[in-house]
């Protein structure tokens, strides 16, 4: 096994793509498609609404999207392997609620066990992790279609929130639960720092870690991944656990920002998460998507919501316009990726 020039492996084909095409392809596959759109929106926003381009407002946007961002990152774990997890929305509500009722006294709506406050974060993440293990079990061992198993669990968790809380929100559940979502560090909300840090670490894992490679390989061709010796079942299972953990963390941030565990917490977030992922170029068919793109999707949704609010568009119209924007962005992303790679993707 010796070779004169080991780094120069592939021989050059006569008709390679031009430099322009190569750039376009790298631009799209790297997940940068939506950044020009985002930039245009920010410029537009600065012109239209004077209050938009203030640092307070921009930080506010970041703070608002951090919950959605963490949920979307979690969702992307399972979408990359060609699965989906609707129950993440339930986790966002249930995990912090369960932790809260373990902490607060019975008079405030708790179980009455009044566990020490510092346990709050661990309980929330522990519950989320267990939910992920359950999802993985249902998909890998029982062999259920994740759409139906996680849909069932979503509805179950919605009910579960009402059961454990008796239908009432829990106020001031304790500093361990609320710190991440409410404190500030270096002038920035901790929630923004948490989102940034998680995005950075998971982004590196997706791109450079063997676990990330396994996710893409399984999403691209599960049988090939198996034949290559990847423990496919274990990766699928763990992806569901990571997804739920991140949704649990997102729920904790939300509880912190509101200083209470609300019974309706997280409702509808899974749709925004899917939208952000698709806008960011994550293929629902699996195997395609980057952290850079995902973040652009999350930011785009945040900026649009903020702009519509600042422009004093009536709230009914905000929701409808967000939906329209999602469809337009998804069309753009799909066309861009088809143009650049010649491969038809289902988004």
């Amino acid at each position: 096994m010796s070779s004169a020039n080991p780094t120069k492996g592939a021989k050059l084909q006569s008709s390679g793509p031009t430099r322009m095409q190569a750039f376009g392809s790298a631009f799209v596959s790297g997940g940068y498609t939506m950044y020009p759109v985002l930039l245009a929106l920010v410029v537009l926003g600065a012109i239209v609404a004077p209050r938009f381009a203030t640092s307070t407002n921009l930080i506010n946007i970041l703070e608002q999207v951090s919950v959605l961002g963490l949920t979307t990152i979690g969702l992307t774990f399972v979408v990359l392997i060609g699965r989906l997890d609707l129950s993440l929305e339930g986790v966002v509500g249930f995990a912090p609620m369960f932790a809260a009722v373990c902490l607060v006294p019975a008079a405030a709506g708790g179980f009455g066990i009044e566990l020490p406050s510092w346990l709050g974060l661990f309980i929330a993440l522990g519950v989320a992790g267990l939910i992920g293990v359950f999802n993985g079990f249902m998909v890998v061992r029982v062999g259920l279609n994740p759409f139906i198993s996680t849909l069932g669990l979503l509805v179950l968790l919605r009910g579960g929130v009402l059961i454990v809380s008796n239908g009432r929100s829990i106020y001031s559940p304790g500093p361990a639960l609320t710190y991440l979502g409410s404190a500030k560090l270096f002038g920035l909300p901790v929630s923004v720092l948490v989102f940034g840090l998680v995005a950075l670490i998971v982004g590196l894992v997706f791109k450079y870690h063997r676990y990330g490679r396994a996710l893409y390989a399984i999403g691209g061709n599960e049988d090939a991944a198996r034949a290559a010796g990847i423990n496919v079942d274990r990766v699928i299972w763990s992806a569901f656990v990571f997804a739920a953990l991140l949704a649990g963390l997102a729920g904790v941030l939300m509880t912190g920002r509101l200083d209470s565990a609300v019974t309706t917490q997280g409702q509808g977030i899974i749709f925004s998460a899917f939208a952000a992922a698709v806008i960011g170029g994550v293929s629902l068919g699996g195997g395609r998507g980057t952290m850079v793109g995902l973040v652009s999707g999350v930011l785009l949704i945040g900026v649009i919501n903020n702009l519509l609010t600042l422009a004093q568009v009536p709230s009914f119209y905000v929701q409808a316009s967000t939906g329209a924007v999602i469809i337009i962005a998804a069309v753009l992303t799909t066309i861009a990726s088809r143009r650049s790679s010649g491969v038809k993707t289902r988004t």
């Binding site: 592939a10 063997r210 490679r213 396994a214 893409y216 390989a217 691209g220 061709n221 049988d223 090939a224 991944a225 198996r226 034949a227 290559a228 010796g229 990847i230 195997g287 395609r288 790679s341 491969v343």
Partner: peptide, 21 residues
């Protein structure tokens, strides 16, 4: 086609998944 390669990934990534560890 069914179980040999991952079409959307490049040559480098396809070869490397055989020996990630």
């Amino acid at each position: 086609h069914a179980s040999g390669y991952v079409g959307m990934l490049g040559v480098r990534e396809n070869v490397a998944i055989g020996g990630l560890d």
